[in-house]
Write a protein that binds this DNA or RNA. Structure first.
Length: 479
RNA sequence: CCGGGUGUAGCGAAGGUGGUAUCGCGCCUGGUUUGGGACCAGGAGACCGCGCGUUCGAGUCGCGCCACUCGGACCA
């Protein structure tokens, strides 16, 4: 038998080499493929289907809160991009430029959008005239392009898919409320849909979006203790409005500049799913975004009636609204088990002749491997309950990982030592100065992740410079 | 962008000192199998990452480029 051991491609052990494990999962779970241009990835059907589920659920949340989808051009004239000083400084270095139209050199070069604030501003200038035109709550699902130096599947693409919301409001209060509303939608989405716990907070001036007054972020903890910025929501004040000369006449018959927000999440979310929930058998998908929630695998499918019985269960579950796949290919059951584990399907349903006699089937949970023999009567309820349990189980496990990787520190040396030994988020007090942030990066290799909304009092002084502290802040090594 | 590593069939690899490519898995066909990556038999599949050069002759030697990968710097 030992000689029959199949030479199966294995993924790298996640504890031995996490980054290699990650790349292996992306490829072996058939989420992504490389193209001939660095950093330009192909989203394969299974990977794209995860994104479609994310889109569907988030889009519904956006619509519920009054947002409308639009589509703006892909090209931005250089002169337009340059209207807001901080913004152009932040993005121009990583823009790709279109310089030719057909065979002719263009009078002015066009940037392929790295983000669309400037385009939205140009448009808003044309359509906002009165307070009655506000608020404008627009969102766009699209791709953007940033000429990154290094790239990795889902984590850093030169072209990536995202949504970018851009809103305009009559007052600062309304705009700030919008920034917070969308930030909370992201946080809830991470926790309730992706089963990923987040730390909610504000970015430092150094880390905030180019041109923003404030950037709110949800920060996630990967299985290896590194941080991943999960989504950002920005408050712009009226800075862009002034730069782009966007004005409206208020109820007071005076001209005002509107207040602006933008907010976005990208396919980087998928990287988070992989690195938070995955294990050494491959991907583990949270049920709410899994393209296949239940895979039905017939056992001894050549025998009379087996395929039919399996198809009946599949149809029953589909009718109840689950995403189900029946795999009646002629691969062996063992092959199928391994295949769908690699692809992270939350539940496997096995049904063979022995089960048929007892009117039962076997259900196996992807998250913990638990095997259950359950009746085919009421299988819909059983599956619904299990998918909920899986979501809860994934969240609990991820929360434990987050909680166990947050450490207070009271000096740069201590922060550095903890990061080197345990990884994770290091929390310290902070004076608010850029110099201290740079020093933490220089000496401990960590960037600030966020100033969490939930503050703790760890002391009165900044442990980096000794001056009075203003906030508690999280530090970490980020993807 | 800087430093290390790697590019040979879909995947993983072998191919001292130059002579037109080998193996395992996978794939296709037929048969036997089927509760953890099945077995037998037959078969198909390679511009050796791309370009230029040296040579009678380059997977092999030289130069350039591209891509992947691991660190670092930069960034969703």
């Amino acid at each position: 038998m030992a000689e029959n051991k199949k030479q199966v491609e294995q993924i790298t052990d996640m504890d031995a080499d996490f980054t290699q494990w990650y790349t292996d999962v992306c490829k072996k779970a058939e989420l992504i493929d490389y193209s001939s241009i660095k950093g330009m990835f192909i989203y394969r059907p299974y990977g794209y289907a995860i994104w479609e589920n994310i889109q569907r659920i988030l889009d519904a949340e956006f619509k519920k809160t009054g947002h409308e989808n639009v589509y703006l051009p892909m090209l931005i004239p250089e002169s337009l991009l340059q209207k807001e000083k901080d913004h152009v400084e932040g993005f121009a270095p990583e823009c790709a430029w279109v310089t030719m139209g057909g065979m002719d050199k263009l009078e002015e070069r066009f940037a392929i959008r790295p983000t669309s604030e400037t385009l939205f501003c140009e448009h808003y200038k044309n359509i906002i005239h009165s307070h009655r035109d506000l608020p404008k709550l627009y969102n766009q699902w699209t791709s953007v392009l940033r000429w990154e130096k290094t790239s990795r599947p889902f984590l850093r693409h030169r072209e990536f898919l995202w949504q970018e919301g851009h809103t305009m409001h009559a007052t600062a209060e309304e705009a700030i409320a919008e920034t917070e509303r969308m930030f909370n939608i992201y946080a809830d989405f991470y926790e309730n849909v992706l089963a990923i716990p987040v730390v909610k907070g504000r970015k430092t001036d150094k880390e905030k979006f180019s041109g923003a007054e404030a950037t709110y972020t949800v920060e996630c903890m990967m299985h290896d203790g590194k941080a991943l910025q999960g989504g950002t929501s920005h408050y712009f004040g009226d800075g862009f409005a002034k730069a782009f000369d966007i004005t409206f006449t208020g109820k007071d018959n005076q001209l005002h500049n509107p207040f602006q927000t933008s907010w976005g999440v990208s396919t980087r979310m998928i990287a988070g799913i992989i690195m938070v929930h995955g294990d050494n058998n491959g991907l583990v998908l949270p049920p709410k975004v899994a393209p296949i929630q239940v895979v039905v695998i017939p056992v001894a499918q050549h025998k009379e009636g087996v395929i039919e019985a399996n198809r009946a269960v599949m149809e029953k579950l589909q009718a109840a609204g689950f995403r189900v796949k029946l795999d009646d290919s002629d691969n062996s059951p063992g092959w199928k088990f391994a295949e769908y584990e690699m692809k992270g399907v939350p539940l496997r349903l096995e049904l063979g002749p022995k089960d048929m006699e007892k009117n039962q089937c076997v259900l196996v949970r992807r998250d913990n491997g638990e095997k259950l023999f359950v009746s085919l009567d009421g299988i819909e309820e059983t599956v619904a309950k299990l998918l909920e349990d899986i979501h809860a189980g994934l969240f609990a496990k991820a929360k434990k990982n987050l909680d166990e990787h947050c450490f207070p520190a009271f000096s740069v040396e201590e922060a550095k030592a903890i990061q080197a030994e345990k990884g994770g988020f290091i929390k310290t007090m902070w004076c608010g100065e850029l110099d201290c942030e740079l020093k933490m990066k220089e000496e401990a290799g960590m960037s600030s992740r966020c100033i969490p909304l939930e503050q703790e009092h760890l002391g009165d002084v900044c442990p980096i410079c000794g001056k009075p502290a203003k906030h508690m802040i999280y530090w970490g090594v980020a993807y």
